[in-house]
Amino acid sequence: MAKNIASDEWAKTGAGPSAYVFDAYGTLFDVHAAVRRHAEAIGQDAQAFSDLWRVKQLEYTWVTSLMGQYRDFSLLTEDALDFCLARFPAVDRDLKADLLEAYSKLDCFAEVPDVLSRLRASGAKIAILSNGTTAMLQEAVAAAGIGHLVDDIFSVDALRIYKTAPAAYALVTSTYRIAAPDIAFQSSNRWDIAGAKAFGFNCHWINRSGAPEEYIDLPPDMVFSSLAGLVEA
């Protein structure tokens, strides 16, 4: 396991999670909701369009980080959308503004409010750790009506490097002064779980799509089909 660069000085308590930290896009918020709202206008390629938008968005985060460069997540989201519009020329380019607006106000998954409320009642901190900018995340949280259930929002924009860089996960440990194993991290993205596991978090993979296992040297601690598994286990 990779050395935890931020929390070695804080002793593990072993008393259960002191904080529940959630990835945002795909975990709390449905990344396909934006295209779904305009599926009729996009046409028969709507799902393929949405899938590619997500793939290119993530690809751009990794490529820019590996180059030692940075463009914030809102810009990369727009760049990825431009690529999709070029890849699917039958889709009306005038939809671009509507799609970006819809992406800023994604639907949260149905179980999210109840799960966050029940976990928060345990006394644990509830936080978001995301590649999204602070402004994007604040808008998404407000639109979903879950602001009262989230204690803190951590954005990699402060670092100008994307997950899975260890420094991204260290934003949480350095702020909370909690050892990594005492933090429960939830993500629907298997690559994100791998990065968080390498950092030392207690990881729950929210495998909504039934995807096959990968990164087998960095396994999640538990796998759930939705966030409801956190309160049903």
Rank of each mutant, 00 (worst) to 15 (best):
K3D: 02
K3R: 15
N4H: 05
I5D: 02
A6K: 02
A6P: 01
S7M: 11
D8M: 14
D8N: 09
E9H: 12
E9R: 15
W10V: 15
A11P: 02
T13A: 02
T13D: 00
V21M: 02
F22M: 07
A33L: 04
A34W: 03
V35Y: 06
R36G: 03
R36M: 07
A39N: 11
G43R: 13
A46M: 09
F49H: 11
K56L: 08
L58Q: 07
T64V: 08
L66D: 04
R71K: 15
D72T: 08
T77K: 10
A80E: 08
R87F: 11
L99Y: 07
L100R: 13
A102D: 11
Y103L: 09
L106Y: 03
E111G: 00
D114S: 15
D114C: 07
V115C: 10
L116D: 02
A121H: 13
A121T: 12
K125G: 06
A127Q: 03
I128A: 03
G132K: 07
T134C: 05
M136C: 05
G145R: 13
G147A: 13
D152W: 11
D152M: 14
I153Q: 12
L159V: 08
T164Q: 09
A167Y: 08
A167Q: 15
A170C: 06
L171R: 00
L171C: 01
T173E: 01
I183Q: 00
W191E: 01
W191V: 02
A194C: 10
A196C: 11
F199P: 01
G200T: 01
F201V: 00
N202K: 15
H204N: 11
I206H: 01
G210K: 01
G210M: 03
Y215S: 08
L218N: 07
V223I: 15
L230R: 12
V231L: 10
